[in-house]
């Protein structure tokens, strides 16, 4: 029972946290969207195309934040062999991949009218594309290795190797010249976004983060269930079956 002691506590805590996460996500995203689409003014240079910022920037922040979270959880899982940390990292990956894809796609839709191109191979855009492939590789590793313990270890190493990409993404716009402009909000000298545009942006960022917490808890809950199902079947002796008993389970295969 020792192995499930922590997951049981996790289940209780997450059941208590989930409604709050949903409430914050709903309120922040709702007011952020109203603020971004209706209340924020058009930009003096970019006109209404600047509103793409309200989904592009939070997506890009989350793309990096989720990776940092995934790598930290991977390190904890790797060093202290904590199954819940492995599960957290695994559950976060598809969300990070989704945010990264959203950042790339919305950036492309913003770049075409403003810069005059859908895509360039500058340091910022290329390093974010690499981040997207890191997420895909991480997800693929989990799916390729049957044993959860071995899969967790292999995936954790990949996640940690990819950490080197995070400072490259963040500082690419300062270290090298790029088409992408430098940071507007997370800079030492303070934001260069007028407050009328900054507050909807921050609300959206809060909403994205609360959404991540909520869906992460949901995914971890599902993953814990799959592991319990697997354990139940193994103790029932189905593992001696040549088809190891659960290969026919479509729901298990479909898990992202």
């Amino acid at each position: 029972m020792h192995r499930f002691a922590n997951p049981a506590r996790f289940a209780r805590l997450s059941a208590r946290a989930l409604p709050w996460a949903w409430a914050v996500a709903g309120l922040a995203l709702g007011s952020g969207l109203v603020g971004g689409l209706l209340l924020a003014p058009a930009d003096y240079q970019q006109g209404d195309s600047v509103r793409i910022m309200f989904v592009h920037v939070p997506s890009a922040w989350m793309a990096m934040f989720v990776y940092a979270f995934m790598a930290a959880a991977s390190a904890v899982g790797l060093i202290w062999r904590h199954a819940l940390a492995d599960i957290a990292a695994k559950a976060a990956a598809p969300l990070g991949a989704g945010f990264t894809f959203a950042a790339l796609a919305t950036g492309s839709l913003w770049g075409q009218p403003m810069w005059g191109t859908w895509w360039v191979w500058d340091a910022r855009l290329t390093s974010v594309l690499v981040l997207f492939f890191l997420y895909l590789g991480y997800i693929a590793l989990w799916q390729a290795i049957e044993d959860p313990g071995k899969a967790a270890r292999a995936a954790a190493i990949l996640a940690l190797v990819g950490v080197v990409n995070l400072p490259i993404i963040k500082f690419s716009v300062d270290w090298w010249n790029t088409l992408h402009q430098p940071a507007s909000v997370l800079r030492l000298a303070g934001p260069t976004i007028h407050s009328s545009m900054l507050w909807p942006l921050l609300l959206m960022a809060v909403g994205f983060k609360a959404y991540f917490v909520a869906v992460l808890l949901l995914r971890m809950h599902a993953e814990l269930n799959w592991r319990r199902i697997r354990a139940l079947r193994l103790t029932a002796g189905e593992s001696t079956d040549s088809s190891h008993g659960f290969a026919t389970l479509p729901a298990e295969r479909a898990s992202l």
Binding site: P41, A42, D43, Y44, Q45, Q46, V50, M53, M114, W115, G116, T117, V120, L179, Q181, P182, A183, S184, R187, T192, I193, H194, S196, M197
Partner: peptide, 18 residues
């Protein structure tokens, strides 16, 4: 053969710029 516009990191309403 190709021209790309580059903008800076400043965002503000027209009235403020004015």
């Amino acid at each position: 053969s190709q021209i790309l516009a580059k903008h800076d990191e400043t965002y503000m309403p027209r009235e403020v710029a004015e």
